[in-house]
Design a protein around this nucleic acid. Structure first.
Length: 513
RNA sequence: GGUCCGUUGGUCAAUCGGUUAAGACGCUUCCCUUUCACGGAAGAAUGAGGGGUUCGAUUCCCCUACGGACUACCA
């Protein structure tokens, strides 16, 4: 029975979308496109207390930036199963909860949080797992222990209650994970999870299962942190009578910190100095303080590179090819080749990926980015043509777009200083003489070409008996201030004769040792 | 603590019982280059430990160790 592939990415709008979340979305997207299916986005905002305004937009914008698009859902024009926000689907869940209660598979519970705490502490003290389960529920206030009329009275009275699933005392729940194989958990290890909260909202578990069923989801591809609750979801499908259309599960390995242990977290970005989020932004933390963070986009990463490097964190094609376009990823992707163990994020590799993409990016595209940087500094007077040529010279030298400016600002402004190491090592009594001669030889040139510039330079060297090796880098430093850079004579020609003359003169006037 | 998942070089990783255990990033050396980079060549570096199964285990099984996730009226 081949059913249409329909997968979903279902984030909670509780803050910025972590790069690991982007990867989850990506794998869902790739899987859907690979199988000609649908990818949809559902917002799981059942916890009103954790809702962060703007988070939803951030998530959508992030996905769009890396090139992930959805066929249905929030941010992508909805679709046949609208609404796609669980808060807006609130009225839909109650009937399924009632269905479970009527079937004796769920029950009302009236315990206060104090009572729950007390229960947990009591059990902990006696060294027993503190779960609300088949044993402990009999000592709590719920529709299993309270007289029927008492339950009715409380309900009619509008008392606070939750609905919990009624799990069997001891029963194996087995399910197949597409990545890990068969997983078996006994209900004795699980607890009677809350399905329906006292605020009238379903919990993740219930909403997730109901929506996946209603939206005809064929595969649930999500992070490994969900593996322990997967049996609960399996049971829910069974109890609701949907087991025959239950989606297949695939639990993805986690993204780990580059150093030490643990999964990649928000803080790691600042601590290690690399982005953990796709886009720069700021959101309130749990205490309500605004916390800002930098993104891949603002750090100069190309979206295609991010897509590529993310795809390779936990998956590989089994070949030696590493650079993949989006379409190539779609063609090559399979859950089978997703690895089981977590992957540590490697900054160097990320940089390398970006470098590959920068190098193959059209000069005009790079120029647009560089132009922004230039204009942002209030610098004008440079043509698009000039900026494009700068990019052509610089792109072999950089790994990140932002380095176009960082390493090539001298194409637009005078160098602020001269590389001290080079001056220290190469500058001597004869240097000013050579510079002087270069200036004199260049000045009369009408057609300033790389060839002419080089010829003038060589003549000056010969005249003073100085070798290339000793002066070459000095010339570069005099022109750009930097020790490295693009081919020097081409660079000079791009500067133009006047700028070259002026900079050499300035070097002559200022460099002293 | 309990449950579940995992474990090939520093990192990402291939291998679906038999290989000199790929490849990439990073690192080192050399070549190219009148600099830096790119490119090219080479090198160091890996199957957590212990038991089995087998003619033969990185590969299958068990134990131990280690790592991770989960353990809320959060997702």
């Amino acid at each position: 029975m081949d059913r249409r592939v329909r997968v979903r990415f279902a984030p909670s709008p509780t803050g910025a979308l972590h790069i690991g979340g982007v990867r989850t979305a990506l794998y869902n997207y790739l899987f859907a496109k690979k199988h000609g299916g649908d990818f949809l986005i559902r917002i799981e905002d059942t916890d009103q207390t954790r809702y962060v305004p703007g988070a939803e937009d951030y998530i959508i914008e992030s996905l769009k930036w890396v090139g992930i698009t959805a066929d249905e859902g929030v941010g992508f024009g909805d679709g046949p199963h609208a609404p796609y926000r669980q808060s807006e689907r609130k009225p839909m869940y109650r009937q399924y909860v009632m269905q479970l209660i009527d079937a004796g598979l769920a029950y009302y519970a009236f315990d206060t949080s104090e009572e729950l705490d007390a229960m947990r502490e009591r059990l902990k003290a006696s060294n027993v797992d503190s779960k609300y389960d088949a044993i402990t529920r009999m000592a709590m206030k719920n529709s299993l222990t309270l007289p029927e009329d008492e339950v009715k009275r409380r309900l009619d009275n509008g008392d606070n209650y939750v609905v919990r699933i009624k799990l069997p005392k001891k029963e194996d729940v087995k399910f197949h994970d597409e990545i890990r194989g068969w997983v078996n958990i006994n209900t004795a290890q699980m607890d009677d999870k809350v399905l329906f909260k006292s605020d009238g909202m379903p919990t993740y578990h219930l909403a997730n299962v109901v929506d996946d069923y209603l939206m005809n989801i064929s595969h649930v591809i999500r992070g490994e942190e969900w593996l322990p609750s997967a049996p609960l979801h399996v049971l829910l499908y069974r109890y609701l009578g949907w087991e025959d259309v239950m989606p297949k599960f695939a639990h993805l390995p986690l993204l780990l910190k580059p150093d030490g242990n643990g999964k990649l977290s928000k803080r790691d970005g600042d601590r290690l100095g690399f982005p953990v989020f796709p886009l720069s932004g700021a959101f309130p933390d749990k205490d309500g303080n605004m916390e800002s963070f930098t993104g891949y986009r603002e750090s100069g990463y190309l979206p295609e590179a991010v897509l590529n490097l993310l795809a390779f964190l936990g998956w590989n094609p089994g070949s030696t090819q590493e650079i993949f376009s989006k379409q190539e990823l779609i063609d090559a992707f399979s859950l089978e080749r997703v690895s089981k163990s977590g992957a540590k994020f490697d900054q160097n590799k990320a940089k390398w990926f970006n470098q590959q993409y920068v190098r193959h990016t059209d000069n005009a595209v790079l120029a647009a980015a560089l132009k922004k940087e230039v204009e942002a500094r209030g610098i004008s007077g440079f043509s698009d043509e000039y900026i494009t040529q700068v990019c052509g010279l610089m792109k072999e030298k950089i790994s990140f777009i932002k380095e176009l400016w960082e390493m090539g600002s001298y194409f637009f402004v005078e160098p602020a200083g001269y590389d001290e190491g080079v001056i220290e090592k190469k500058w001597n009594d004869r240097s000013p003489l050579v510079l002087q001669d270069i200036i004199q030889l260049i000045r009369p040139i009408d057609q300033f070409t790389a060839f002419g510039f080089e010829a003038a330079y060589n003549d000056a060297l010969t005249k003073n008996g100085v070798s290339n090796k000793d002066f070459m880098q000095l010339l570069r430093v005099c022109l750009s201030g930097a020790a490295g850079g693009p081919p020097i004579f081409e660079m000079g020609v791009l500067f133009g004769k006047e700028v070259v003359l002026q900079r050499l003169q300035k070097a002559l006037d200022t460099i002293k040792k």
